[in-house]
């Protein structure tokens, strides 16, 4: 059992730390670490650290306390060394076993549980990604904890903010569990600096749980364009594009002119105009780029849930009453088949 750290105790510890100038002595750091320590579950693929998962470190920094990173997989040394350079992490726990390469929750969850018990962490943080979504609730159940999903902000060590109802309402929830299991919305926590840190690396415990599931294959959309979830600019097409050929002919050159990632509405995906990995919305990806430029998208509530935190929203639609214009900073009423190519041409100049 982990003793519960009351809010005031933590605050005291933090203010004491803040009052010191220069490097804080190790003794008081470890005193705080005993109160609050976060395990950031980092993702890796094919021996490379997934930098998108470093938002977990940023979230842990907001909590205060010590930050430990966790990686597992075959030949994990290179990934662990990469993770050790991440700013803000004081220790990396690495488990070298190829059985964990694919992040299958059946054996990865017991692995995490053992390491959480051994390390006595108070907060376990992972991204709300396919990996985090399938793994973390299983971990939570094994620890008898009610997970807090897809948070967008942290108030204090037990109070978190998360969108509900497709982002139409924002709930503030307080957890009474001793261990907080949290997944974070990647667009709400920027990835931690991948340089400047010098964490120690330590072997984790490996319970070698049997895995009842085997990985067969994957079919990932290959693209030279930026990744949708993390791109600074996104151009997105909807049902107004009429066909896959038109989608590719109209949207892809615009994306390339802007150096943007490509997204799509659910309607466009369901009609087969775009791959479903490009879907933006409540049940697709949530993006928050500097620029979200959409064409032929009416602006259904489920779609807005996936993009309304974008810095600038620009929309092209022939229906002047489309709801997208209520949120767009720049609206252009017109036929996208004329306007988008014109825009593409003028941007290239």
């Amino acid at each position: 059992m982990i003793p519960r750290a009351g809010h005031s105790v933590l605050r005291q510890a933090r203010t004491q730390l803040k009052r010191r100038t220069g490097p804080a002595p190790v003794a008081s750091l470890s005193a705080l670490a005993r109160l609050l320590s976060s395990l950031a579950v980092l993702e890796q693929k094919d021996g490379k650290l997934n930098h998108g998962s470093l938002g977990a470190v940023t979230a842990a920094q907001k909590l205060g306390g010590s930050i430990i990173g966790f990686v597992a997989g075959g030949n994990i040394k290179a990934v662990a060394e990469e993770a050790a350079k991440v700013s803000g992490i004081e220790k990396i726990i690495a488990v070298d076993n190829a059985a964990y390469d694919k992040g299958l929750p059946e054996n990865y969850a017991p692995l995490l549980v053992e390491n959480i018990k051994k390390g006595g962490f108070t907060h376990i943080i992972a991204g709300h990604t396919a990996f985090g979504k399938s793994l973390m609730p299983r971990v939570a159940a094994l620890l008898d904890v009610q997970q807090i999903s897809d948070i967008t902000a942290i108030e204090d060590e037990k109070t978190f903010i998360r969108p509900v109802y497709a982002g139409n309402a924002i709930a503030t929830v307080e957890s009474s569990d001793d261990i907080k299991i949290i997944t974070i919305r990647g667009t709400a926590f920027a990835a931690a600096e991948a340089e400047g840190g010098s964490a120690s690396i330590e072997d984790g415990v490996d319970p070698k749980a049997e895995c009842t599931t085997e990985w067969v294959s994957e079919n990932l959309a290959k693209s030279d364009r930026p990744d949708l979830a993390t791109a600074g600019k996104v151009v997105s097409g909807g049902r107004g594009l009429k066909s896959k050929e038109d989608f590719d002919r109209i949207m892809l050159p615009l994306a390339d002119a802007l150096g943007a990632a490509v997204g799509a509405s659910r309607a466009a995906v369901d009609s087969g105009y775009a791959d479903n990995s490009l879907q933006v919305g409540q049940t697709g990806k949530v993006v928050a780029p500097q620029l979200y430029l959409c064409a032929g998208i009416s602006g259904a509530i489920q779609h807005l849930a996936g993009m309304k935190d974008s810095k600038v929203i620009a929309a092209i639609n022939k229906d002047a009453d489309a709801p997208i214009f209520q949120v767009a900073d720049i609206g252009l009423v017109g036929d996208l088949f004329d306007k988008v190519p014109e825009l593409t041409e003028k941007l290239k100049q």
């Binding site: 059946e106 399938s134 609730p137 299983r138 094994l142 109802y165 009842t212 409540q282």
Partner: peptide, 22 residues
């Protein structure tokens, strides 16, 4: 689509010790 948690199935699989496919 109300709470948007996405947890129940995975938790059940964990409690039962069964395989899961999400």
């Amino acid at each position: 689509i109300d709470d948007d948690a996405g947890q129940t199935g995975q938790m059940l699989a964990g409690l039962l010790g069964w395989a899961q496919a999400t």
